[in-house]
């Protein structure tokens, strides 16, 4: 699997891309594979505050629930609406159209402390 080079990653298998002060957050290909068929995604509403390393939502398969942790702090500007009716998109395109939320970050410095793609690749390899 090729993990996009311009994204940063967490040990909890989230990815972040940053444009200006807006971060787009999703879960990685590895995470969706571990979960299996995703049936439901629970996301915060725009305006909600998220805090780095705190859970902001969850992703469910038939027999498991995984919390999603915020890689950066800030305020939610958008939640991906297509996931409500089509949770399977998260299995199909986790790094693209099936992003979870967009956040106006309060500290852009948090982004640079996350893992780059190469490091995450190694981390996933070691874990499995």
């Amino acid at each position: 699997m090729n993990y996009p080079e311009n994204y940063r990653y967490t040990k909890e298998h989230e990815w972040v891309s940053l444009e200006g002060d807006i971060a787009t957050i999703g879960i990685t290909h590895h995470a969706q594979e571990e979960l299996g068929d995703i049936v439901y995604v629970d996301l915060p509403k725009p305006g909600a505050a998220v805090e780095k390393s705190k859970t902001f939502g969850s992703v469910e398969s038939v027999k498991a629930v995984s919390d999603i942790y915020a890689p950066v702090s800030g305020e939610v500007t958008e939640a991906n609406e297509i996931l409500g009716a089509n949770p399977e998109k998260l299995n199909e395109d986790p790094h693209g159209t099936a992003w979870l939320i967009k956040v106006k970050v309060s500290d852009a410095g948090e982004f640079s402390h996350l893992m780059p793609a190469s490091e995450y690749q190694t981390y996933v390899g070691a874990e499995s």
Binding site: S61, K63, A64
Partner: peptide
């Protein structure tokens, strides 16, 4: 929708 239930979500 078993993810609501105790055997999966436990304390939550």
């Amino acid at each position: 929708l078993a993810t609501r239930e105790q055997h999966i979500r436990r304390e939550k």
